[in-house]
Design a protein around this nucleic acid. Structure first.
Ligand SMILES: Nc1nc2c(ncn2[C@H]2C[C@H](O)[C@@H](COP(=O)(O)OP(=O)(O)OP(=O)(O)O)O2)c(=O)[nH]1
Ligand SMILES: [Mg+2]
Ligand SMILES: [Mg+2]
Ligand SMILES: [Zn+2]
Length: 576
DNA sequence: GCCGTTTTCGGCCCGACTGTTTTCAGTCG
């Protein structure tokens, strides 16, 4: 897809533009940045949009106007953008690489290039080792040291953490700050509060009046590798685990405004602040102020949204994807709640690649508060997982029957499988075995590199078999390891609707598949969803919260999620 | 460069921290 390429080009254009002297350069920069972000998250292929509707269709995308639409056209038809080439010749600098270093922006990169011909990190390292930086005008000893540390930090950084990696760290730091008694309140903010699938850095808000003590405690935590910046209101540290953590300390009267600010997202904040402006207010992290400068709201986050004419928006929805308009119209969805799941349709045991027995999986499901699970082991083609054949399933299910009898009415195990969708779209078990099951999860585990239409055909063929209840991890992505395979999710959802197949929101933190935007894309169809743990051991039920967070980010109401219902109703919804 | 139930021109979110800047630009949240 050209989306990615064009996003990179416009990000570079933004860098170039930020160095221009013209009056409007700042705002052009932002326009380019905004378009890059839009192209990055655009679901449709930009080339397709252009092919169907030309420049006019491009301009219908908010953020894309005439000038940028024509640049996109130029790129799609000639493979080049003249303006870009012109800038690139003027600034032959790898901004993408250099600005990844904390503290280096485009202006710094430019003076490094002008003074020392530095174009990339390798050049910069050489200059530092020769001690050339500190002699430069506008730079000193500290700047050189900062750049050196910045490079080391970048090299040791893990990149974006999984939500499941970041959340416990955030909770631990919050606990430490709370226990100190120095703060009235300590809360998680940022992308972690929004339950994003990956976390760039951890953000924590403390409410209190003794900020310097709180900051000292924070920078002194044993998990801290070094302090990056430290002030009375904001401190940034680099943690030993290879990620950054920001702490803001704000006074009690501003709790709501500070939470609103620090939860983000940035785009959501900007949009909310525009609403404030239109109402004659000013909004910042300290409060909402009228023209005379009087505080209109500060303590309560809900009150803040209300004063702006909106309903309170759940953090998971704060991505500027239309939630602000809905909140104004009082039409926000009633999102699925945490701990509202009654069951789990996707679990493994040590009979294949799990590490616990079915008895243990049941025991812990009950401890977790569930009323039923489906036991869905892998099928024979998945040899690395010791997938089971028909005979083993038959034997296994007699054990399930015995266990169900012992359990009585308290808990129920559904007989199922996570059956491989083979290359041709057929299923990896015979129809008799599949027909006897109560919960067939069908998943792609092989041949990921098919063309988009072939993969779509493969999956829809499986859905049309009449045996599939749930489509497992529909895009196959493994976060930070493997991109999703090419598939037309709208066609899949359409097929799921007509064949009564439920789409999975696999809650396993490396998957979170479907992801938030895929849920929004597919929920236009009359399909239901299942939030499944994909548990491979007894502790994995705890990942269900990440699946619920993802469902909330996809704006799902509980009525669309099959396992929010008790067994009877859930089974009726799964029925073919 | 984009955009418009007050606008097709004149706005564009708002503030914290750092360094060598003698009064604030650059970078970041
Ligand atoms: N108003 C405003 N708020 C911002 C801006 N940049 C960041 N924020 C707020 C909203 C963000 O969610 C919050 C934390 O900033 P981060 O850079 O850590 O972003 P966030 O946590 O959303 O994503 P991340 O996973 O860390 O990349 O600070 C900005 O430019 N303007
Ligand atoms: Mg963050
Ligand atoms: Mg942050
Ligand atoms: Zn699987």
């Amino acid at each position: 897809m050209k989306n990615r390429e064009l996003a990179d080009i416009f990000t570079e254009m933004a860098s170039f533009e930020s160095l221009e002297e013209s009056e409007n350069a700042r705002f052009k920069t932002r326009a380019y940045q905004k378009v890059a972000g839009i192209l990055d998250s655009l679901q449709e292929d930009i080339a397709e949009i252009y092919k169907k509707g030309g420049v006019k269709a491009l301009m219908e995308i908010p953020g894309i106007g005439k000038a940028i639409a024509e640049k996109i056209e130029e790129y799609l038809t000639t493979g080049k953008i003249a303006k870009y080439e012109e800038y690139k010749a003027k600034y032959p600098i790898d901004f993408k690489e250099l600005t990844k270093i904390e503290g280096i922006g485009t202006k710094t990169a430019l003076s490094l290039y002008k003074e020392l011909g530095i174009k990339n990190i390798a050049d910069l390292k050489d200059a530092i080792s020769r001690g050339e930086i500190s002699k430069l005008p506008g730079f000193g000893e500290k700047s050189e040291e900062l750049l050196d540390k910045g490079i080391k930090q970048l090299e040791s950084s893990k990149g974006r953490l999984l939500l499941s990696e970041a959340l416990p760290v955030a909770e631990f730091i919050v606990e430490r700050l709370r226990k100190s008694g120095l703060a009235e309140k300590v809360e998680i903010a940022g992308s972690t509060r929004r339950m994003r699938d990956t976390i760039g850095d951890i953000d924590i808000l403390a409410i209190g009046t003794s900020s310097s003590e709180i900051m000292d405690l924070f920078t002194g935590l044993e998990d801290v590798e070094r302090t990056v910046v430290k002030g009375p209101s904001k401190t940034t540290v680099y943690l030993k685990i290879g990620t950054t953590c920001d702490l803001r300390v704000i006074e009690p009267g501003s709790f709501g405004a500070a939470m609103q600010y620090f939860t983000g997202s940035k785009d959501h904040n900007i949009q909310v602040r525009k609403v404030a402006i239109n109402k004659g207010y000013k909004l910042n992290e300290y409060g909402l102020y009228d023209r005379a400068g009087n505080m209109v709201s500060g303590v309560g986050e809900q009150e803040l949204y209300n004063k702006l004419g909106m309903d309170w928006i759940p953090p998971e929805m704060r991505e500027n994807r239309g939630e602000i308009e809905l909140a104004m119209k009082h039409k926000l969805p009633n999102l699925i709640q945490y701990s509202s799941l009654k069951g789990d349709f996707h679990t493994h045991t040590k009979d294949t690649d799990g590490s616990n027995t079915l008895e243990e999986m049941v025991e812990y499901a009950r401890k977790y508060g569930l009323e039923y699970i489906a036991t869905t082991n892998h099928t024979k083609s998945l040899k690395v997982a010791r997938g089971m054949d028909e005979a083993r399933f038959s034997e296994y299910f007699s054990k399930v029957d015995r266990l169900n009898e012992e359990l009585g009415k308290d808990f129920h195990i559904l007989k199922g499988a996570e059956v491989d969708i083979l290359k041709d779209g057929s299923l990896d078990l015979d129809n008799k075995t599949l027909g006897d099951m109560e919960c067939v999860v069908a998943s792609v585990h092989s041949n990921f590199n098919m063309a988009k239409d072939e993969m779509t055909k493969r999956v829809t063929t499986a859905l049309e078999s009449g045996y599939v209840n749930i489509l497992g991890h529909p895009t196959g992505r493994l976060i930070n390891e493997r991109p999703p395979f090419q598939i037309d999710l709208e066609k899949v959802a359409e097929s799921a609707e007509s064949n009564n197949v439920v789409l999975e929101i696999n809650a396993f933190p490396t998957r979170l598949d479907l992801k938030d935007t895929d849920i929004m894309l597919t929920s236009k169809f009359r399909v239901n969803y299942a939030i499944d743990s994909d548990a491979h051991n007894i502790s994995h039920y705890s990942v269900l919260k990440y699946g619920i967070g993802t469902a909330r980010r996809g704006w799902l109401e509980p009525g669309r999620v099959v396992n929010t219902f008790h067994l009877d109703k859930a089974l009726r919804m799964l029925k073919k």
